[in-house]
Nucleic acid binder design. Structure first.
Length: 884
RNA sequence: GGGCGCGUAGCUCAGCGGUAGAGCACUCGCUUCACACGCGAGGGGUCGCAGGUUCAAACCCUGCCGCGCCCA
């Protein structure tokens, strides 16, 4: 044992040391010590947006990753947490555009031009981007910052280009004209996943279209009257008798005066609306499908809108330039004027909104680049089905399968400037050449061709799908790649399975020789407010994790999130919990301070010191039991179990019992040999607590580690508990459990009878066997201190308190103090409890079904329990009888 | 409409086949020489409802009721 280094201050104040330790760890490269011979352990961070700022979801996600990394680092693995940020195409472009608009020049990207704008974005990235990486440091995240990556850095660009070209050459990536989700505010295609459906109170308008043959009208119903201008057909259900007479005829589309066919398609629901549906192939996903199913009908596909969702030149002149909303009003009014508006029915329905712009998304017909996701999904499904990649909790596999099995072509082009520009060039005739460089494209096209590069960039997820291998140097065959691919686990929110997990698995398998990017996917839940509501800026119920860090310390926040993380369930975060775990940190701080003031300091061995005394042997065994529980918790990703086990051990075992039981052993006049042993064991046990708690509370534990003595290494790069060096010690365990039981019984009885807490009572004992007698004498000092009883010098007469523990009955004379009636009532209650359980067990044992069919262990346990309860009831009965 | 999940102490949640647990909150007592962000002792649950399987069910099965999420 080495002597204390610095005195531990009386008050625990995390702000005093958290940032100091972080800076130290980073400076000495503690996050990734050189361990060339160790087995690698790799986590690839889900890269936060470069525009992002830390919210509680990040705090949870990164706390869990940090626990895994710190734990495996303590186990001696070559732990590496690959870190970096995502360029976040739309988000970043929006941030910079907003700044431009608000700046003194009040300019736009269009006014600046592409090159100048991109320079501005890079400037922004250099000065303001990545604030979140500083916030992750506040949280204690032990990432490998020395190899921080960005999805737009040079190597990554190379990877993205290579993947694009390769997929194109393999015919898994192609250009196509299809409907996309068009965001008319941002003027770009967006992914299905970036579309948010909202229930909206709208209307169902019923209109009449006159029949070509003058035989009357066909009525249709629509929620989007403005799209009537682009109708190409009317469809009815083939089995609908009331519509049969229309089929095959044509009707005249009012306002545009165009003849359109009436066709049948089973997609039409006969009893919804009027039973007839207008088909606008260019502005509705379902209608587009109908159009494709009916080539014979020659349905025209008319793109009614410009890219800002104003009405285009394809509309009659009086509608051109109107917004969607204005056009809708005018169409309704014009139909009404013609007497063709039948009725307006209130109708609640789902409307698509862009989750970033907040405007209504328009299904829009454009040329875009698509990845054949269905093809890439096949092996990605297989790898989960075979177990090569496992989801924890397993239930998310179904969600993954469901999405993968119904996957649509993935639109990967975006009409943005910030991102990876698509490596495709067009000649004057519009012919497309895809190549890794412009020179290569030129070579394909011939030197005479004048090439123009595709203006669009790739979906951010296209590049982040490559994160697990492009961060490690791919397409170069680096040592890093060989060593750290695949990662051990991906930790992420379940809401991101589609965005991330699915796409990383697809690309990882395709480009890394069928090896999936990680062995395990741990999906956690969402962090909600104390009432269970989703946190959102608009609701104003967001909690800034850094505010909690300032108030309670990063360790307390981390512990809270860990304790509440049980396998993917959502977390309702109540600040009271953070406060509670701050109290736990304070408790441990004070325990360490107590140890220090008693000459207990840093241990010198990883193995436990030699111990003779039962309480010391007991705590060594308890450390091992706890460490094993923690190992199991980590192996099964039970973060809540990890937190519970270390909390319970540190507080309820070590502080409440061990430190209290050993106080007499350290007191003045105690046996110096025993005292020395106790100091050694205390120091060792406290060190093990620091080691075991370190993954969750890294700052506090590192601080105490150094306060307790001079160390040859920092705790972060120390060593996990050597459970293999600790044999089971059932004798010590039995001794101390007996002692704890006795003290608890006495305390309980004293309180019930209102014995003054300070009063020290004499006791006499009956029925004690040799073991109990030995235990009573070996632990006399502890019993006196904790139960406040000492062996009686005289025999009790009159009123007494009696209690039964193990094989003995203890009597505490309480002449004049005890209320005889109260003591009788207490004993009667105890007898009732014991008898009730005795009888219940007897009943079970009497049932032939139980003794014949139950597992032998269960029967044996019932017999033992029955005997114990029976004896207890008997002794309590005798005690009651003695009271008279 | 399809799928997933949840209903256990006042609150938040563990437990998922052998006598109901934790933290917080609550009650009572305590200036016990580490800690009142503390110490000690307590009260509190027909484990959503109804059936079934089993010697035994909070735990497995079926149905119902209530709540949430995802997809269409």
């Amino acid at each position: 044992m080495t002597l204390p280094d610095t005195l531990i201050e009386k008050t625990f104040s995390p702000a005093d040391f958290e940032q100091r330790w972080y800076a130290h760890w980073e400076a000495v490269n503690a996050f990734r010590p050189e361990r060339p011979d160790a087995k690698p352990y790799t986590i690839i961070i889900p890269p936060p947006n470069v525009t992002g700022s830390l919210h509680l979801g990040h705090a949870l996600d990164n706390t869990l990753q940090d626990i895994l990394i710190r734990y495996h680092r303590l186990l001696g693995r070559d732990a590496r947490w690959v870190v970096g940020t995502d360029h976040a195409g739309i988000a970043t472009q929006m941030v910079v555009e907003r700044q431009l608009a608000e700046s003194t020049q009040a300019t736009t990207r269009q006014a600046m031009g592409r090159t100048a704008f991109l320079e501005t974005v890079w400037d922004w990235k250099r000065t303001s981007g990545g604030a979140i990486t500083q916030q992750l440091r506040r949280l204690g995240a032990s990432c490998d910052w020395s190899n921080e990556r960005f999805t737009m850095d040079e190597g990554f660009n190379k990877a993205v280009t290579k993947v694009f070209v390769t997929l194109f050459e393999q015919k898994l990536l192609y250009r196509d004209k299809r409907l996309v989700n068009w965001d008319p505010k941002l003027k770009t295609a967006i992914s299905d996943l970036e579309v948010e459906f909202r229930e909206v109170d709208g209307n169902l308008w019923h209109f009449r279209y006159p029949m070509e043959d003058g035989s009357g009208f066909i009525a249709i119903a629509t929620t989007r009257p403005e799209t009537i201008l682009g109708d190409g057909a009317v469809a009815v259900n083939p089995d609908d008798p009331k519509m049969a007479h229309f089929v095959g005829k044509r009707c005249r589309l009012p306002l545009v005066d165009r003849l359109i066919p009436i066709i049948t398609d089973s997609y039409v629901e006969a009893d919804f609306g009027t039973g007839a549906v207008k088909i606008t192939a260019a502005h509705d996903f379902n209608d587009f499908e109908v159009y494709k199913r009916h080539p014979e009908a020659n349905i025209p596909v008319i793109n009614l809108m410009n890219d800002d969702a104003t009405m285009s030149d394809a509309c009659p002149p009086e509608y051109r330039g109107l917004t969607r909303e204005e056009a809708r009003k005018k169409v309704i009014a014009d139909f009404d004027a013609l007497g063709l508006l039948d009725k307006v029915e209130p109708h609640r329905h789902q409307v698509p909104y862009g989750d970033r712009s907040g405007v209504i998304i328009e299904p829009y017909l454009t040329d875009q680049w698509y990845v054949n996701a269905a093809e890439l999904a096949k092996p990605a499904l297989e790898v989960v089905k075979s177990g090569a990649t496992q989801f924890v909790p397993k239930t998310w596999e179904k969600t993954y399968y469901n999405w993968m099995e119904n996957i649509q072509p993935w639109c990967v082009s975006r009409q943005l400037w910030w991102g990876h520009q698509i490596p495709a060039w067009y000649d004057e005739g519009g012919k497309c050449y895809v190549a890794e460089t412009e020179e290569a494209a030129q070579a394909q096209a011939g030197s005479a061709a004048v090439l123009t590069r595709d203006e669009d960039v790739l979906d951010t997820w296209f590049s982040s799908a490559l994160w697990p291998f492009a961060t490690l140097g791919w397409p170069e065959k680096t040592d890093e790649l060989a060593r750290h691919y695949p990662g051990d686990v991906l930790v992420t929110g379940f809401d991101i399975i589609f965005f991330w997990v699915a796409r990383m698995v697809m690309q990882g398998l395709h480009f890394m020789d069928d090896v999936p990017p990680f062995k395990t996917v741990y999906c956690h839940g969402l962090v909600r407010d104390a009432k269970g509501a989703k946190m959102s800026k608009s609701k104003g119920n967001t909690v800034d994790p850094l505010t909690l860090v300032d108030k309670y310390g990063a360790d307390a926040l981390r512990f809270t999130l860990t304790a509440m993380e049980s396998q993917g369930r959502d977390i309702k975060l109540d600040e009271k919990r953070v406060e509670g775990y701050r109290n736990f940190a304070t408790k441990l701080w004070n325990a360490a301070r107590f140890c220090q003031s008693n000459g207990i300091g840093a241990s010198t061995t990883v193995e436990p010191p030699k111990a003779e005394n039962a309480v010391n042997r007991w705590i060594i065994g308890e450390v091992a039991t706890t460490a094993r529980a923690l190992e199991t918790a980590m192996a099964t990703y039970r973060f809540d179990a990890y937190a519970d086990a270390i909390y319970g051990f540190a507080w309820n075992r070590f502080c409440d019992w061990y430190l209290e039981l050993t106080k007499p052993l350290l007191a003045e006049g105690a046996d110096p040999v025993v005292a020395a042993e106790t100091r050694a064991v205390s120091g060792w046990a406290l060190d093990q607590i620091l080691v075991m708690l370190h993954p969750v509370m890294p700052f506090l534990t590192e601080e105490l580690w150094h306060k307790l003595g001079a160390r040859s290494r920092d705790l972060i790069v120390s060593e996990w508990v050597r459970t293999d060096a600790i044999p089971a010690d059932p004798a010590a365990s039995a001794d101390i459990e007996w002692l704890i039981g006795l003290v608890s019984e006495v305390r309980s009885a004293r309180t019930e009878l209102n014995v003054p807490p300070g009063a020290k009572l004499g006791y006499s004992v009956e029925g004690a066997g040799a073991a109990t007698t030995a235990r009573l004498s070996a632990n006399a000092a502890a019993i006196e201190r904790l139960a406040r009883i000492v062996p009686a010098t005289t025999t009790a007469t009159g009123g007494k308190l009696q209690l039964v523990h193990a094989d003995a009955t203890y009597a505490l004379p309480l002449e004049g103090v005890v209320d005889l009636a109260a003591e009788k009532a207490r004993l009667e209650k105890a007898i009732a409890t014991a008898s009730k359980e005795r009888d219940a067990l007897a009943g079970r044992l009497a049932s032939p079904g139980f003794t014949e069919k139950a597992k032998p262990e269960a029967v044996e346990k019932a017999r033992d329990d029955h005997a114990a309860r029976s004896a207890e009831a008997e002794r309590l009965g005798a005690a009651l009888a003695r009271l008279g």
